[in-house]
Every structure is written in C-alpha cells, then in structure tokens.
Design a protein around this nucleic acid. Structure first.
Lengths: 205, 205
DNA sequence: ATATGTGAACGGCTTCACAGCC
DNA sequence: GGCTGTGAAGCCGTTCACATAT
C-alpha cells in the first residue's frame, strides 16, 4: 500500500471529484469523461486524469470512467467507505452550527458527541450528547475516536489539543484562530475565518 | 505598486504572522526575531523572511523586526488597514453562527447586512439587519460591497453568486458544497467542511 | 475517432547558503 | 556574534505531448 504518496492537494481534489460523482449518480449518469468531470470540478482534464492515476487505472479509453466504480475507488482511498466517528469540542456559535450540519453524515462522518465547559448551559436542540470537557480524554480513548473538531476560543485550543492527542486522536480540524503545536503523527487542518477574509481582501483590486 | 506578485500561499501566511504579531502587541513585546515569530506561526524562519521580503525591508539586522511597524505593513498590504464591509447570504446554521462571530471586526471586516429567503422566519438576536434575498443585488451595488460570504444550500449558491457578481462583488467566501463558476476577475475561496474531514480521513493511518 | 494513461518539460514555491548590516 | 536579506539550488506539483487502448 503506497497511499502515502498522493499529494495533499490531490487528496483535496479527489474529495471534490467524489462530490461531483455523487451528483452524477443521483442523475443516474453511468459514465463520465475526464473532460466533463473536470469541468464540473473546476479543474483541468489532465490534472483530473493525473489525480485519478494515483489510485490506479479506472477508465476505459475511448469511453471514460464508470461513475460507480470511480466513486467506490475514491471513497475507499479516502477512508470514507465506512462511518468514521467524530467529536466536537466547544459548543459555541460555530460548534453548535456544526452539530446541526447534516452534510457530514452523508460523507461518512458521524458526530457522536460534543464537549463544552458548561454542557448544561448550552441551548440547542439535538440528539447528540453534550458532555463536560473534563471527560474529554477518557471518552476519546474509550471510544477510540481518531478525529475531532475543535471550535473553542483560541486561548483554550492548545489545551484541548494536548488532551485529545494524548488520548490517541490522529486528526484535528481546528477552527480556533491559533496555531496548534502537535506531534508529527497528528494531522491538523486549520480553518481560520479571519485569515480567509484577509486573503480575499488582498486580491480585490 | 507590484502587490500582485505576492504568491497566494504567502498571503495566507502573512495573515498568520499578523495574528501572531497582534498577540505580541497585547503582551507589549516590541521586537521579535524571524526565528521566534516563525515558531509561533508554525513555519520555517527562512520562509518567514522570504514572505516579509515581498513587502520590502522591515527588519533590523542583528536585532529583528519591530512588532508595530511590521503589523502595520502587513495590514496595509492585505488591505485590512481600514474597515471592509461584508454581507452574509444565507442565515441558516452556519450563516447565523458567522453573524455572531466576533473575530471579523477585530481583523477589519464589518458584517453590514445578511440576506435570506425568509428573513422574518430567522430567529436570531443580532443588530445586523436581515433582508430578503430579492433585495440582494440592489443592496450590494448601492453599498458598493466588494466581499460577500455565501452560506446557502449548494443548489442555490450559483444563483446567488451570479447575482452578486453582476452587482459588482469581487471576492466570495463560499461555504456551500459546490464549485462556483465566476468570471476571472472574481476571487473565490471555498471552505467545504466535508472535504476537510475527508482530507483528514485520508491521512489517518 | 475518441478518450485515457504517463513520461518529460515547465513553472512556482521552498530551502539553502551566504553576503550584508547592526 | 546575531540576525536579516536574497540570489541560487532544489523540490514538488502542474501542464504538455503523445503513446495506447477501444
């Protein structure tokens, strides 16, 4: 298994292709060419073929790709073929919005619990249990959670990260506006809303 | 002014540096070395110096950078030195969370209005006016809004984008899980939560 | 004829090495 | 001695050109 060779950017695009393929499946399209799929995903056809090439050979020359076969292949490589449990830490504005977001389950992720400093003070209608953050480490290890979403204020994020890393978490989606220091074997994807806006700000003339 | 030469990735990091510099200002630190600042931002010192080099020469050899001077320089280049008006379209889970998010104003962005299909049905305590999406185009042009945040469901996003682009918007932060087709002069930053999770999923062993 | 698969060329960002300055 | 500034080298991902398959 030489999965680790796929470049990070290509992995992002594979997710994109998967999203487009799902739409095609809904419309009962069975076959798609690299040109058509690339256009839907907003990339160049050659890049799409190169990206898919990382997974192996799935196309039929002169015809295109079978939508279902390709979907399954990408899903398998991304590790989303089976449901992945995820925990949210910090049930503030953003955290509670994420808890209500329905898009995760469709893509193979289940929010199994949330944590907050004051779980009783949280007003939100949900079936997802909200625990005290003091129980976070214990919960993560006993449920073998590998992925967490951090949406606590910046000054609390590093502490939370330390706790979950010690408890065995391997991947963190961090919405806090701060850089997390973690061991090399832990992956962090950072989404900083202010940074995104600032970035846009630069590119408007 | 040769601003347009700064690579996009460098612009992202400049935002990061700015965030770290603000913390230093709060702690009344006046000078910082590239090594220290780079560590705080999670990048290599040489990269930080190269990035800052795009702006000009701001350091003092043998000493480091003056925190305030550097902050102002980055802020000026990013265009966040003065308040930038922003509009949010789609006041659902995510949209309302973004409206309540206090981090924007601190970085120079003011949410001046929000838009929804059913503005009256929205239950949210806020001082930000919520209008009907039918008024979107007119509002954007008359207020000369250059940046918008789109947080509507995927199937409505392209329509919204068309409207605001026609009304003169130059930058879009898109949270909808779909690829927007826009003219070349419009910049789109996409944040797809499911894609982020899928990406992490791949990298956990 | 049409579309995929892929080695090679290209381009851009990162890292290195060291010159220049305090 | 310590730290910044920067041309050069290295690396990685994208694009091209075309061989290959139906």
């Amino acid at each position: 298994m030489e999965r680790l060779e796929i470049p990070k950017k290509a992995v992002y695009r594979l997710s994109l292709y998967l999203r487009c393929l799902e739409k095609l499946t809904e419309n009962q399209v069975e076959t798609v060419s690299s040109v058509a799929l690339a256009k839907a995903a907003g990339v160049k056809p050659t890049q799409l073929r190169k990206d898919i090439g990382y997974l192996g050979q799935f196309g039929t020359r002169g015809l295109g790709y079978n939508v279902e076969t390709l979907s399954c292949a990408i899903s398998a490589v991304l590790g989303t073929a089976r449901l992945q449990p995820v925990v949210i830490i910090g049930v503030g504005n953003l955290g509670s919005a994420l808890m209500r977001y329905s898009g995760f389950k469709k893509e193979g992720f289940e929010i199994i619990a949330a944590f907050d400093l004051q779980p009783d003070a949280v007003e939100i209608e949900t079936t997802i249990p909200i625990h005290d953050v003091a129980e976070l480490g214990e919960y993560v290890s006993s449920h073998e959670v590998k992925m967490v979403i951090i949406s606590v204020p910046g000054d609390a994020a590093q502490n939370v990260a330390n706790t979950v890393v010690k408890a065995g978490v391997q991947a963190i989606l961090n919405f806090s506006p701060c850089v997390l220091q973690v061991p090399d074997h832990v992956v962090v994807n950072q989404i900083d809303l202010a940074v995104e806006l600032e970035n846009l700000s630069y590119f408007i003339s």
